[in-house]
């Protein structure tokens, strides 16, 4: 059998594929963070909690109201987005002119409250959410056994990431957004409602987290702690990609997923640290991140 670094090529390809699946989650979450940081200058620590809220809402929808997976995929992000808008209007909007630290502390506090709330209601062991029937089973790729649902996760995440990138970089709306980031006063002088755009951007950013949450619900256990387990890695991804860089967060998210996946084969003990080692190296060599611009 052919081998790469002493690992059978089949196992190698399998791990590559799994890395992509995890990378998809990183990409989607870090994309939301990057959009929010890019446009609002807020380090949104509540992102993990909102991702968890997305998964929780999907579970609650199914078990209390009989709302299926597909509707959840639409409704849960909407609900999370609306919740985000309420946060932005009632709290965050007063912090834009202050130091980053204030936004970080506020969103971190919100994350703790959200997690505590769900923990109190449902406990920490989590709740089962079964895979939708359309995706039961798996594809035999020859080199591995890929569950259909995981394939769908990669596809859905790539679509969402591409759409977001396209809207921000290639459309008129995106141009307004970028202008509003660059110089909010001048943009407002041109008759564009900047506060409204900022509000919608935050709503959209956290809706992405909610969407990732629903996607994760069938693949992982729905639990109040699922967000805090992931969020630190996602922040590392954003830092490596360059704070606020859209393309950077997508590419780094997928890339780091793959690197982490391979670490799990070669030296599993280090799989939770490898991302941070890379972060340290990147910060030493390129402090603004791989795709970031120095201001």
């Amino acid at each position: 059998m052919t081998e790469i670094f002493g690992i059978p090529i089949q196992a190698f390809m399998g791990q590559l594929m799994l890395g992509l699946v995890n990378g998809s989650f990183y990409a989607m979450l870090s994309l939301g963070l990057a959009v929010i940081f890019g446009m609002l200058n807020i380090i949104n620590f509540a992102h993990g909690a909102l991702y968890m809220a997305g998964a929780m809402l999907a579970w609650m929808g199914l078990n209390y109201f009989g709302i299926g997976y597909w509707w959840s995929l639409l409704l849960a992000p909407l609900a999370v987005g609306v919740f985000g808008i309420v946060i932005e209007r009632s709290m965050l909007q007063w912090l834009y002119k202050l130091d980053h630290l204030y936004g970080l502390l506020l969103t971190f506090g919100l994350a703790l409250i959200l997690e505590g709330l769900f923990r109190d209601l449902y406990g920490v062991s989590g709740l089962p959410y079964s895979i939708p029937e359309e995706f039961a089973g798996a594809y035999n790729l020859g080199f591995m056994f890929l569950p259909k649902y995981r394939a769908w996760v990669i596809l859905a995440s790539l679509l969402v990431c591409f759409a977001t990138w396209f809207v921000i970089e290639k459309t008129r709306l995106g141009a307004y957004l970028r202008a509003a980031t660059e110089n909010p006063r001048l943009t407002q002088a041109f008759g564009i409602n900047v506060p409204l755009m900022v509000m919608l951007t935050y709503g959209f950013g956290v809706a992405l987290a909610g969407f990732a949450g629903v996607l994760a619900a069938p693949a992982m256990q729905v639990s109040p702690l699922m967000g805090s387990n992931l969020i630190i890695v996602v922040f590392a991804v954003v830092v490596i990609g360059g704070m606020g860089s859209i393309l950077g967060s997508i590419v780094t998210g997928l890339g780091l997923g793959v690197i982490e996946g391979l670490t799990k084969v070669f030296y599993p003990e280090a799989s939770s640290t490898v991302v941070f080692i890379i972060m340290a190296i990147v910060l030493l060599v390129r402090p603004a991140g791989l795709f970031g611009r120095e201001k």
Partner: peptide, 18 residues
């Protein structure tokens, strides 16, 4: 050997499978 609170176990399980 996986780290405590690992977010995803599929890689480890694939090794167990093979």
């Amino acid at each position: 050997r996986h780290p405590l609170n690992a977010s995803d176990f599929s890689s480890f399980l694939l090794q167990a499978q093979s």
